[in-house]
Write a protein that binds this DNA or RNA. Structure first.
Lengths: 106, 106
DNA sequence: ACTCTGTTTCGACGTCTGTCGATACAGTCG
DNA sequence: CGACTGTATCGACAGACGTCGAAACAGAGT
């Protein structure tokens, strides 16, 4: 991000990912999934902690999935979600500002 | 994010920052500022690269500023913006998923 | 003081987003 | 097959968001 001014297409794709993270419920969902034992969680584990309805949680999970941040799979009765680490790593790397680039050190 | 399930307040604050990054123009603005010589840029440097009006750019800069991602200061005729590295570092660290936590390695 | 340039604020408009209840779909177990 | 549980989709609605043109504000220079 510091080296190149970030082209239009790249910015569009990245902004879609960040948009998925721009809701407090989705952030908490992601951290619940990531911190869940085995690295994955069933939808039924994700409804309890929130005050919103089940369809709303389902909607948020869909947003996370379509942003490429989580994967999902049905196994029998339940649907499991897990985090896709490459996606988060991509965003994390983008936000790393080399200390030498900070204004204070210029 | 992997260790603790991310409390409501923390999620709310972080989601505000991610929301500021959820627009392609704001992402490009941020990278333009970060990659600009000296680590800061004048608003007049930030208008040219975009197809939107100047008030719209000003609006986006305000969003970035209120999210705590950039600082700004008027010096004479021009207003300068710079990135606040601590804020980006905070988000970057949040998104770092230890490899051992990935589902594939569980 | 006046004007000119750079920047922000204001008011309005159409679109997108989060939420809900109701409903449909998927699998399991009698 | 039929009922039951878990999950996704649909349709609707209120509120938030990105954008614009017009207007206000801030400094610099004449």
């Amino acid at each position: 991000m510091v080296r190149e001014p970030l082209g239009e297409e790249a910015a569009a794709e990245l902004s879609r990912m960040f948009k998925a993270l721009s809701d407090p419920i989705r952030l908490r969902l992601l951290s619940l999934i990531a911190s869940h034992e085995g690295g994955e969680a069933c939808v039924c584990d994700l409804i309890g902690p929130f005050d919103v309805s089940q369809p709303t949680i389902s909607h948020h999970l869909k947003v996370l999935r379509e942003a490429g941040l989580v994967g999902s799979e049905r196994r029998g009765t339940w649907v499991y979600y897990w985090v896709l680490p490459e996606a988060l790593a991509k965003l994390s790397a983008l936000l790393e500002i080399p200390a030498a680039s900070a204004k204070a050190l210029a």
